[in-house]
Amino acid sequence: EEEKYTVIYPYTARDQDEMNLERGAVVEVIQKNLEGWWKIRYQGKEGWAPASYLKKNSG
């Protein structure tokens, strides 16, 4: 089951394993960790993003 989330704040990656996020983008969360960083898939790429910048899509 894919978990789709919408980006609610833009984010600029500060590290090579982080993802740039555009507000309104829909991403797939593939791994959650306890530090508040989630691994996401977006446009065929995978990387880490701050969970607080993502909002779960309803339905």
Rank of each mutant, 00 (worst) to 15 (best):
N33C: 08
R41G: 04
S58R: 08
N33L: 06
G36K: 14
K4D: 13
L34Y: 12
K4A: 09
Q16H: 10
R41A: 03
M19W: 05
E18F: 09
K4F: 15
R14A: 14
S52F: 04
Y42C: 13
A13Y: 03
M19G: 02
I30K: 06
K56D: 07
G59V: 10
N57Q: 13
G47R: 03
L21H: 01
M19Q: 05
E22L: 04
K56C: 09
Y11P: 02
E46K: 03
A13H: 07
T12Y: 07
E18G: 13
E18S: 12
K4Q: 06
R23K: 15
G44W: 01
Y53K: 07
E2D: 06
E28A: 06
Y53M: 07
Y9K: 15
G44S: 09
K55C: 05
I30D: 02
S52M: 04
Q31K: 05
A25E: 15
Y11K: 03
G36E: 13
Y9P: 01
K4Y: 13
E1N: 11
K32F: 03
Y42S: 14
E3F: 13
Y11T: 09
Q43A: 12
T6A: 10
Y9Q: 15
R23W: 03
K55Q: 11
A51V: 06
E28M: 04
N20T: 11
A51G: 14
W48L: 13
R14D: 10
G24T: 02
K4E: 03
E18Y: 09
G44I: 00
G36F: 04
W37F: 15
T12Q: 06
D17R: 10
I30Q: 03
D15W: 10
I8K: 13
K4C: 12
K55N: 06
N20R: 08
V29L: 08
S58L: 11
A51K: 13
R41N: 11
N33Q: 04
V26Q: 08
E18N: 11
L21P: 01
L54C: 02
V27K: 00
A13S: 07
Q31W: 04
A25P: 00
Y5I: 02
E28Q: 11
V27Q: 00
Q16P: 14
I40L: 05
Y53C: 15
V26W: 03
V26I: 08
E3K: 08
K55A: 06
K45E: 06
G47W: 05
E35T: 15
E18K: 10
Y42R: 05
G24I: 00
S52E: 15
K4H: 09
R14Q: 15
M19R: 02
E46G: 02
P10R: 10
T12R: 11
G36H: 12
I8A: 15
V26D: 04
G59Y: 10
E46L: 09
E3M: 09
Q16A: 14
P50A: 02
E35A: 13
R23V: 11
Q16V: 12
Q16G: 13
V29R: 01
I30R: 06
D15C: 10
E1H: 02
E2I: 08
E3G: 05
L54K: 00
E18P: 06
N57I: 14
V27P: 00
R23T: 11
V7P: 01
Y5K: 01
D15S: 12
G24N: 10
K45L: 10
D15E: 13
L21M: 07
D15G: 14
R14M: 07
A25G: 04
V29D: 00
Y9M: 12
A51C: 11
A13G: 14
R23S: 09
G36P: 06
I8P: 01
D15K: 13
V7T: 04
G47D: 01
K55V: 10
S58V: 07
M19H: 05
I8L: 14
K55R: 09
K4T: 11
Y11C: 14
Y11A: 02
L34N: 15
D17Q: 15
M19C: 09
E22Y: 07
R23Q: 15
G24Q: 02
A49I: 13
Q31N: 13
L54N: 00
S52I: 04
R41C: 06
D17N: 12
P50C: 04
A25F: 04
L34C: 14
S52H: 11
Y5W: 08
V27H: 00
P50N: 06
Q16Y: 05
Y53D: 02
N20K: 08
Q31C: 09
E22T: 14
A25L: 05
E3N: 14
S52D: 14
K32N: 05
A49F: 11
G47P: 01
S52C: 04
E35L: 10
I30P: 01
L21D: 00
A51L: 03
K4V: 10
W48D: 02
R41Y: 03
Y9V: 15
I40N: 01
G44Y: 05
Y42Q: 09
M19D: 01
L54M: 06
E18T: 11
N57A: 08
T6Y: 06
V29N: 00
L54H: 01
A49D: 00
V7N: 01
R23I: 09
L54Y: 00
N57V: 10
G47T: 07
E22W: 03
K56R: 07
N33I: 02
A49V: 12
S58H: 05
E28W: 04
Q43K: 04
K32W: 03
P10I: 00
D17M: 15
Y9F: 13
E22V: 09
N20V: 08
Y5D: 01
G47K: 07
L34W: 03
P10G: 11
Q31V: 08
I8T: 08
A25V: 08
G47L: 12
V29Y: 01
W37P: 15
Q31E: 14
E46V: 12
A25N: 08
I40M: 01
K55E: 14
N57D: 13
Y9C: 14
G47S: 10
D17L: 07
N57Y: 10
E3T: 11
P10M: 07
E46S: 07
Y5S: 02
L21R: 00
N57K: 09
K45T: 03
E2T: 14
K32C: 05
S52Q: 14
K32I: 02
G24K: 03
G59R: 06
